[in-house]
Design a protein around this nucleic acid. Structure first.
Lengths: 193, 193
DNA sequence: AAAAATACGGAACAATCGTTCCTGAATTGG
DNA sequence: CCAATTCAGGAACGATTGTTCCGTATTTTT
């Protein structure tokens, strides 16, 4: 009947994630998208509707990727405390190694858009809730196994962890490249466990 | 010789802070500025040069205001630990009461612009360093007075505090209105002291 | 081979962007 | 009063914004 799509929609989305992540929503022009996705204007609009829809789709894909890998990490780890430190160490490594530090796409979007776009606000809020749940559940398990101090409630600790993760991603986005700064923060965080 | 300025430049800058804080740099148009500052296009450009210069001037003013009040707070407080909790409680109150939560102008700007505007990057970095110094000095004093545990180095704690402050401001910007979330985070933070 | 669907490049759209300039009125000090 | 300066308002600038549409080539299935 018809010609098949020549480009992979998910691959195009990954490209969109890259540029939106790097430049933000308002900072990314339609021309930027055409250049970076390698699609024609027409294909781009035919496939994704408009810029806002493409952005939402990109952000959702980014979210899914990250939540999946987060869940997987906890499922495959014996020790919860080590898993938590791994997450932060990984964030630090990314922050230091990336030539252009992009921070976290979700954090960036939440700062730039959550106030003005209810659809983005919902995604951000859902994400926060889900991450919180994942952390909370893992910490509770860690406490039962005696790997994590149970002086504090699991949910409280989960929110605390989330907060510091956001902070570190902002630090990275701001261009901090001094490893000692990150290590100092991590030291304090894990003094609590 | 000449007619005197009818508007107060600092008051105009405060207006500029408001709208840039609310809408971000890219989200604020020249027309927005004209409307919100109450100046004509010509006066605006005659006085401040262009949009970027106005933004930089606004951000610097915001920075000075905040650093001044931070220093003042520590100078006028007997107990450092209470002063620190006051800072966070104040941030939470602002986050909850503001009908439109704007987060922190410095954090917002750092996420939106630090990567792409070296001048902003410098301001953000200077600010981070200065806040860190203020915190660090205060904490050291608190440790000497026996008000704060000296299990951790002062600078390390200062960076940790800064990180959580950023995180909370992001949370506010994202629209979080559940007081319990903030309180949980604060509980964990001050379990360290 | 015919028909259907999709790709592409590029022209074109109106709208908005940041910025400049002009005009005329207002206010000041000499 | 005069000269100097600043004000407001708005017209106008070229550039860029996001978006639509057209013509044509390509590929697929019937």
């Amino acid at each position: 009947m018809a010609r098949t799509k020549e480009f992979n929609e998910d691959q195009a989305l990954d490209k969109a994630i890259e540029i939106f992540w790097h430049k933000g929503y308002n900072g990314t022009s339609a021309q930027d998208l055409v250049n970076h996705l390698g699609l024609s204007r027409s294909s781009l609009y035919d496939t994704f509707g408009d810029k806002q829809k493409l952005f939402v789709k990109s952000l959702k894909r980014y979210q899914k990727q990250n939540l999946d890998s987060l869940k997987e990490l906890f499922e495959n780890s014996e020790n919860i405390k080590t898993a938590l430190t791994e997450i932060f160490k990984q964030a630090v490594v990314e922050s230091l190694q990336d030539r252009i530090t992009k921070g976290c796409f979700m954090v960036n979007s939440s700062v730039e858009l959550a106030m003005h776009d209810p659809e983005i606000a919902k995604i951000v809020h859902d994400n926060q809730k889900t991450v919180e749940d994942i952390f909370s559940q893992a910490i509770k398990k860690g406490q039962e196994l005696g790997q994590i101090s149970d002086k504090q409630e699991a949910r409280s600790l989960a929110r605390f962890i989330f907060n510091n993760y956001s902070g570190i991603r902002v630090l990275a986005r701001a261009g901090e490249r001094d490893k000692q700064v990150y290590d100092d923060i991590l030291k304090s965080i894990f003094a609590l466990f």
